[in-house]
């Protein structure tokens, strides 16, 4: 059976660390957002939650930056892919995405390149809101150095960004972990060995799969 090596070791390591940081950020974020939960757990929970939240934020924002510094060419290539003009198939994918999500047995999705247009859009939103949540979080961390008015708007921005990140994360888990039946098996890409079977690759990223199979550079047989 043929597989394509889609994700590198570095990408998977970054994803693992990001997963752990995100988990820590959401758990501690909920404790900070709804203090009655923290108070019900134990005395001092809030203090620990705050500390872990800030540490998690540093990892969450720092790891991708570190990865970009380690492999700048790969990062540049990825960004280039993100800013490619959308093809007719990309636009069709976006048009059909919601009908497909609610009726996958009847809706056929167009072939996609290395990154689906929906994936590019979601990643872009994640980057925007991660920056907003990071910037507003930095202001809140150093709240004493800024005007109360600015800090009040930062609270609001942090919360709005959190809601958006939460919704994007739920969607990401639903699709990425293969809870959505047509996506079953994709979890292996980031949490496993980074390989995707030829059949899965053709289903999700048809054009890219064709290119990879033809070149054979990342194809492995198991």
């Amino acid at each position: 059976m043929r597989y394509i090596q889609r994700q590198s070791g570095l990408a998977r390591s970054v994803h693992w660390l990001h997963t752990l940081a995100t988990l820590a950020l959401f758990i501690t974020g909920i404790l900070i957002y709804v203090p009655s939960i923290a108070n019900a757990i134990a005395l001092g929970t809030m203090e620990v939650a705050r500390l872990v939240h800030r540490g998690g934020a540093l990892i969450f924002l720092g790891i991708p930056i570190l990865a970009m510094l380690i492999q700048p060419r790969a990062a540049a290539h990825k960004f280039k892919e993100y800013f490619k003009p959308w093809t007719a198939e990309d636009k069709e994918f976006m048009k059909k995405f919601l009908p497909y999500l609610f009726n996958p047995k009847k809706v056929h999705m167009p072939e996609q390149g290395k990154y689906k247009s929906g994936q590019i859009l979601a990643d872009g939103l994640v980057i925007v809101f991660a920056l907003l949540i990071g910037i507003s979080g930095a202001f809140l961390w150093a709240a004493n150095s800024f005007s109360p008015e600015l800090i009040r708007w930062m609270y609001l921005l942090h919360d709005v960004s959190m809601i958006m990140m939460g919704i994007l994360l739920l969607g990401h888990i639903y699709l990425g972990a293969g809870i959505f039946k047509p996506y079953r098996g994709t979890g292996r890409l980031m949490f496993g060995d980074g390989k995707v079977s030829e059949a899965d690759a053709r289903y999700h990223w048809g054009k890219w799969a064709d290119e990879e199979i033809t070149s054979g550079e990342h194809v492995v047989k198991e």
């Binding site: 999500l101 996958p104 959505f180």
Partner: peptide, 20 residues
């Protein structure tokens, strides 16, 4: 949740695909 219920029983090889 609704999407998950709609996707249950999905079979890539045998599903009856129609254009939306």
């Amino acid at each position: 949740g609704i999407s998950f219920l709609a996707s249950m029983g999905y079979d890539r090889d045998s599903n009856n695909v129609e254009e939306v």
